[in-house]
Nucleic acid binder design. Sequence first.
DNA 1: TTGATTTACTTTCTCACGAAAGTTAGTCGG
DNA 2: CCGACTAACTTTCGTGAGAAAGTAAATCAA
Lengths: 382, 382
Amino acid sequence: MAAASPSWRPLEGAAHQIAVEVLIHGPISRSEIARRLSMSPATLTRVTKPLLDAGLLFEATKEEGGARLGRPSQPLDVDPASRHFVGVKITSDAAHGVLTDLRANVQSQAVRPIADRAPDSVVATIAALTAELAAQVDRVTALGVSAGGVTEDNASLKWAAYMGWPDAVPLGPLLQERTGLPTVVENDVAAWTEAERWFGDGRDEPSFALVTTGMGVGFSLVTHGGRAASRDIGVGSLGHVPLDPLGPPCAQGHHGCAEAMLTSGAIEATVGIGLGRSVAYEEVLALAAEGQPVAVSTVAASARALGRLLALIANTTFVPLIIVSGEGIGLAVQQEALVRAEFAAGRHPMARDVRLLLKQAPFTEWARGAAVVAVQTYVLGR
Amino acid sequence: MAAASPSWRPLEGAAHQIAVEVLIHGPISRSEIARRLSMSPATLTRVTKPLLDAGLLFEATKEEGGARLGRPSQPLDVDPASRHFVGVKITSDAAHGVLTDLRANVQSQAVRPIADRAPDSVVATIAALTAELAAQVDRVTALGVSAGGVTEDNASLKWAAYMGWPDAVPLGPLLQERTGLPTVVENDVAAWTEAERWFGDGRDEPSFALVTTGMGVGFSLVTHGGRAASRDIGVGSLGHVPLDPLGPPCAQGHHGCAEAMLTSGAIEATVGIGLGRSVAYEEVLALAAEGQPVAVSTVAASARALGRLLALIANTTFVPLIIVSGEGIGLAVQQEALVRAEFAAGRHPMARDVRLLLKQAPFTEWARGAAVVAVQTYVLGR
DNA sequence: TTGATTTACTTTCTCACGAAAGTTAGTCGG
DNA sequence: CCGACTAACTTTCGTGAGAAAGTAAATCAA
């Protein structure tokens, strides 16, 4: 059994930077931290000493890197199990929760349906879900909640039209009172982006983009190590970018815009009209795999549209990496060749290579993003 | 007559940061610098003392801000005339040069035709142009050269196909030897971007985009205070973004791509075909103003395409400001309403407002960008 | 085995930063 | 005119950062 976990809260200055570096990149040697943070080796010795004494950091067992020159480095690490966090993602019909450790590794998950969308009722559902997950560990440090829409001050959710809510609902304070846990609220795409930035494939990239498809089209941008914190991230500003002049119209009448080409609802509708019956997204992919013509052509058009969208993003943002995921990632994975071909066609022949990462993540990844925001809030002390 | 100008070169740490802050934002008070750089007031008093003694900074006369509370601030400033720089922009047929002060204010300009495009001959032309401009002042501190194409290490120019040059030409070292001046080479769009970032409309914006039209379509992005330093900036990765499915084809056969819709050559060609005779860009604008149908429709299509391109950029980069300029800016200014309407149509109704700045700058602005890169190299000591 | 080499980490010392308190130069209200 | 107030700037002083030199722990070559 671990002793009472040391606290991050009073850390500041160099100690704080070093602890965060170890959390995100650990196990990592003092000298490597010194290089990354542009600190002197002396500072590392001095600052890590009390952190080791307090038990916040410990010296990990040496990796068998084998046959390197010089004195072997002594990697430092944190104990991820020292703290736990709960992340909850809300959709219009369910709350998806995960329990994670300090590195946002998912320990367990749970789902509760949202029958009544009244704010009070949703708060009660989230609180019950949190309690269920929290019961599995001694103590939970913080709660993160993510949802589509615009968030303000990491506290309230605005314009969540899909919930039929009023202008702004102070989810954070309401949940904080109900659960007794420090609670932060963040846009779902922003939260997922933070998960990639701290603990995911963006960990070693100062610049990358994240694109999600599924119910909607999500897009977020990280440059120079920081996320573009525009509230536009919550309004889906990329949703109506034109991608195919011959594509079907979206609800606003844009032909072949991103929403009309990429969202699961639009794909289901297009194939449904062609088949004369309603079909689910997974069935569309299955039909396409079998060679059903309507499904094949719809899926192909969608894949090409996605490739074009990714090329647009690469052309306008100069990022070396685009992470593509979301519930709709199945289509991109099935049609990866088409996506990549159209992407390449939209790029300048002399342009630098961009890494496309089609990432098949479970739906819990959304909730994990919420947990990461909770981790950040705790660790960064905001 | 000014005394021998104090040197920036040995500055480091806080002194350097403060001096740069005064250069870019001066006249500026100590307390304002302290806020901007997150330094203590004590540090400002201590560090500025020797800078004032050395004459690098001086206390400017108090601005009549009128009726502010508290002790009046004592703004600090630099003497921009203490140093001079030369910036040269190369095109396929001429070298355009400017002489500037430390703040990149243009003192005078000169042009020399490039008859022979052989590298040695071009170097000789630039050197002669530099000598002509440098003769007007005591001493020039550094030389900056900008051109289309990809630059490496601020020293050599690659893939400048329009010059018919081999793979890479070490312009920097060649000019440095010839002129005796420290010389830096930078892509023309990147250089202009630096001019906006340090001394232009991007001075107070941590994030903005720059779009230029003219011979080609230029695009560059600044986020979190730093320019995206991709070499893609030199290859025109935005040139073939599709903007109008019904537009004319470019050389690569893309219908309605940015180059086909926005470059002066493409516009001249489209109107030329319609009129059955060759026309110059300025004449196209004049004809459009008179109501000549072919010119009107071509110019309108181009303006709408530009609006769509700007919307795409806003949608994918989250910048609050897009600066639009270049030799082709005349069209955008003439058709500003169309550009703005199409831009608005391409934005999400709930998306944050983006400021479009249509900036009518003379061609010397390109050369000024080169001068800014020279200033930066000197001031930052690289 | 021994010494050269490389790299990681530690110790010592100095100096530059910021916190806190003090000073200055204005406006404002009586 | 005078004192209260405000905000910019300055002084004093303790602490925490880096420079430089030293030590440790490995590989490698003879």
